[in-house]
Design a protein around this nucleic acid. Structure first.
Length: 436
DNA sequence: TACATACAC
DNA sequence: TATGGTGTATGTA
C-alpha cells in the first residue's frame, strides 16, 4: 500500500505528462495508484518525488510572497494595470485569418494497423527504448499513454500488444499526408511527423468554400490518399486551432467562429492545462493561486498582476482573451539553433568505458553535423546518473567546430561531485549525452 | 556565457 | 528487470 506521503500531485506527476492533455480515462485516480504502486522504490520514482517536492517548495515561496504583497496591495491599482494590458492586447486581436491545426489520429499506431490489419481494434502500443511512443485507442481505455514505461503499461493492460517502432515507415506516410495538405496552403508548417498548421484563408476565398467544408474536404483527401484519419481544429489563431483539433478526436473537426464573443465563450471554461506551453508543473503553480480555467485568470487578475514575474501576467491574459499568433510559416533551415545526439545505456562506472561511450555518441553527432552541413560554437554535454539526476556542462569555443575531436573539449570539464577528475568517482553513471 | 527547468512531439 | 530522443524557450547568476 502507498503511505499518506504520496500526495495527489506526485501521483499525477507519475502518471506522465500526457495524462492531463488527453481526455480523462474512466478512473484516473485508480490508474494513478497502479502506476505509483508499480514505480515505487525505483530510482525513477525517487527522482520524481524529489522534483515534485521542489515544485511544492516553489509554490510555498510563491504563496508566502503573495501574502506579503497582499498586505500593502492596492487592488484597484493592480486591476487597473491588468485592464490596461487587456485593452492593449485587445487592440491586437486579429480575426481575419482562417487557421487550421491538423493532428493525425494515433499516427504511429494507425500506420502499424495499415501494415498489419490484425492489430485493428486491439489494445496495442508502439514502443522504443522502454517507453511507449503511442497507444491505440483501445489501449488508451486502460489508461495506457504515450511516454509511459512499457512495464507500467503492461500492469495497466496485461494483454497489451507491444510493437517496435518503424520510423522510416512513419516518415514515408508523413510525407504522403503533408503533401496532400500542402495543396491547401503552400506555406503549411509541419510540427513533428503527425501535426501541421495551415492558413486556409486564401484557399477558401479562391474556391468559394466555407472553412468547415474546406477542412472536411482536405481530411477526406488525406484519407483517400493514405487510408489514415485525422482530426482538425479551425480557429482565428494557432493556439485556438490546436486546442480545437482535440475536441472531436478521432476523425473529427471543430470550428470556432472568428468573432470575439465565440472566442471568449470558448476560453471561459477552458482548463489552463489545454493551453500549449502550460504543462504539469505550470498547471500546479497556477492552480495554487486558485486558477483552473482561463476564465479564472480574469477573476484573479490582481493577484497575477502582483506576481507578474512568477506567473507572467501578459501571457496568461493572452490565454484568457484567446489571442495568439496567426502566422503560419514553413520550417526554415536558418531557424535551427542546436543539433544533438543522446543515448541511454546500462550503468557504466568505469572511466575508460564511459569515454568509449562518449566517443561513440560524438561519432554519431559528428556524422549528423557532416550530413546536415552544420557547425556550432557551444558544445553542451548532457549526462544523467543512475539516480535519474541530470546535469549539463557547456563550453563555448572561439571558433565554429564540427569534428569529433573538437566535440570532446567538453569531456574534461569538471563534474560537481568531483572537481578535478570528471570521470573518477561518478559512480553509477547510467547515461551520457552530447549535444551541440 | 553556463546551467537548470519546463515544454512539445 | 524495468522510465526515450531531439529541439526550443526562459530565468538566473
Amino acid at each position: 500500500m502507498l503511505d499518506a506521503a504520496e500526495n495527489t500531485s506526485l501521483l499525477r506527476r507519475l502518471a506522465g505528462p500526457s495524462t492531463g492533455k488527453a481526455g480523462l480515462a474512466k478512473d484516473q485516480t485508480e490508474i494513478n495508484r497502479i502506476i505509483a504502486e508499480a514505480s515505487k522504490g525505483s530510482p525513477f520514482y525517487e527522482n520524481e518525488r524529489k522534483k515534485d517536492e521542489q515544485v511544492t517548495r516553489r509554490i510555498e515561496v510563491l504563496l508566502k510572497k503573495r501574502e506579503e504583497l497582499a498586505k500593502a496591495a492596492d487592488i484597484a491599482k493592480l486591476e487597473a494595470n491588468a485592464e490596461r494590458l487587456i485593452a492593449e492586447l485587445e487592440a491586437t486581436r486579429d480575426l481575419s485569418q482562417i487557421i487550421c491545426h491538423v493532428d493525425m489520429d494515433a499516427f504511429y499506431s494507425s500506420v502499424e494497423v495499415l501494415d498489419n490489419p490484425e492489430l485493428a481494434d486491439k489494445a496495442f502500443a508502439v514502443t522504443g527504448g522502454g517507453v511507449l511512443s503511442t497507444a491505440s485507442y483501445e489501449a488508451r481505455k486502460w489508461g495506457v499513454r504515450s511516454g509511459m514505461a512499457t512495464f507500467i503499461a503492461k500492469k495497466l493492460c496485461p494483454d497489451l500488444i507491444c510493437v517496435a517502432h518503424h520510423f522510416p515507415r512513419y516518415i514515408e506516410m508523413s510525407k504522403a499526408v503533408m503533401s496532400v495538405m500542402r495543396k491547401y496552403d503552400s506555406n503549411m508548417a509541419s510540427w513533428g511527423l503527425d501535426e501541421a498548421y495551415l492558413n486556409l484563408t486564401q484557399y477558401c476565398a479562391a474556391h468559394n468554400l466555407t472553412a468547415e467544408a474546406c477542412v472536411a474536404q482536405m481530411r477526406e483527401e488525406v484519407h483517400r490518399e493514405t487510408k489514415l484519419t485525422c482530426s482538425a481544429g479551425i480557429a482565428p489563431n494557432k493556439m485556438l486551432a490546436k486546442i480545437c483539433s482535440d475536441r472531436n478526436k478521432p476523425n473529427g473537426q471543430y470550428y470556432l467562429a472568428p468573432d470575439r464573443d465565440s472566442v471568449m465563450t470558448f476560453t471561459h471554461d477552458l482548463s489552463i492545462r489545454k493551453i500549449p506551453g502550460i504543462g504539469r508543473v505550470t498547471e500546479r503553480v497556477i492552480e495554487s493561486v486558485g486558477i483552473k480555467t482561463c476564465g479564472d485568470i480574469y477573476t484573479h487578475r490582481a493577484a497575477i498582476s502582483m506576481l507578474d514575474k512568477e506567473l507572467g501576467l501578459k501571457s496568461l491574459l493572452r490565454a484568457y482573451l484567446g489571442i495568439a499568433s496567426n502566422v503560419v510559416e514553413p520550417w526554415a533551415r536558418e531557424s535551427t539553433k542546436s543539433v544533438g545526439s543522446e543515448r541511454t545505456f546500462k550503468t557504466i562506472s568505469d572511466t575508460g568505458r564511459l569515454l568509449e561511450k562518449l566517443d561513440e555518441i560524438a561519432e554519431t553527432l559528428e556524422s549528423d553535423l557532416e550530413h546536415g552541413g552544420w557547425c556550432g560554437r557551444t558544445i553542451t554535454l548532457r549526462y544523467k546518473l543512475d539516480t535519474f539526476q541530470s546535469f549539463t556542462r557547456a563550453k563555448t569555443m572561439d571558433r565554429y567546430v564540427k569534428s569529433k575531436q573538437d566535440l570532446f573539449a567538453v569531456s574534461t570539464l569538471p563534474h560537481p561531485r568531483c572537481r578535478y577528475d570528471p570521470f573518477h568517482g561518478i559512480d553509477g553513471d547510467s547515461r551520457w549525452a552530447k549535444s551541440l
